[in-house]
Amino acid sequence: MKRQLPLFLVLIFGLFGIVQYFIPHEKSEWMYEFLLDWIYIIGIFALALGIWSLMRVSWDKIKHKRQNWQYSIVTLTGLFAMIFFGFNYFRDFFNSAGLQNYMFRAFFDHIMIPIQATMFSLLAFFIASAAYRAFRARSLLATLLLISALIIMLRFNPYLGFIGDYMERTALWLLNVPNLAAKRAIIIGVGLGMVATSLKVILGIERAYLGKD
């Protein structure tokens, strides 16, 4: 019961996921749309579990005064403040409702967005340090990596005009042709791997995710 029924559910719903693709009929579409909706709704309950986990870990840190426990207070404060503003619907705390709450929007626009964009922009720095560290002619493979990266970067630098038209075409060819071949090989391989893994899951061969007992 603890393991058989879940495996049976996986088999049934997995097979339906495959079969529905071949049935254009409305009944199958209807079922398909329901299933997608259900997954989203279950996701909300899972999110509650997630928030619970976050709160518990943070609270544990504070309670046991673990390293950096002070910052967990910041996390919890941010969490509760945002939930408070986001759920103000009940209280009519400010004059706007739910997601439209002024403070909710402000936290989003002036804390979440700037941090998010800044984290993303760290990539400009990291791409440089990674290039410095890794693009070295250590071995044949590393050299190939280095050379093709350099050709493409030269192509996009207008200050190196001496490379000329022919070089530019070589760079573009590199982007178009070997690139296409390699991506195709990866996609075909990944496709087969995905099909195999999905089948293993549906048939209950791969069952690590269900735990044990």
Binding site: I127, A128, Y132, F135, N157, Y159
Partner: peptide, 8 residues
Amino acid sequence: HLVIMAFI
């Protein structure tokens, strides 16, 4: 770009 290439 120039800086990155210089470092490479």
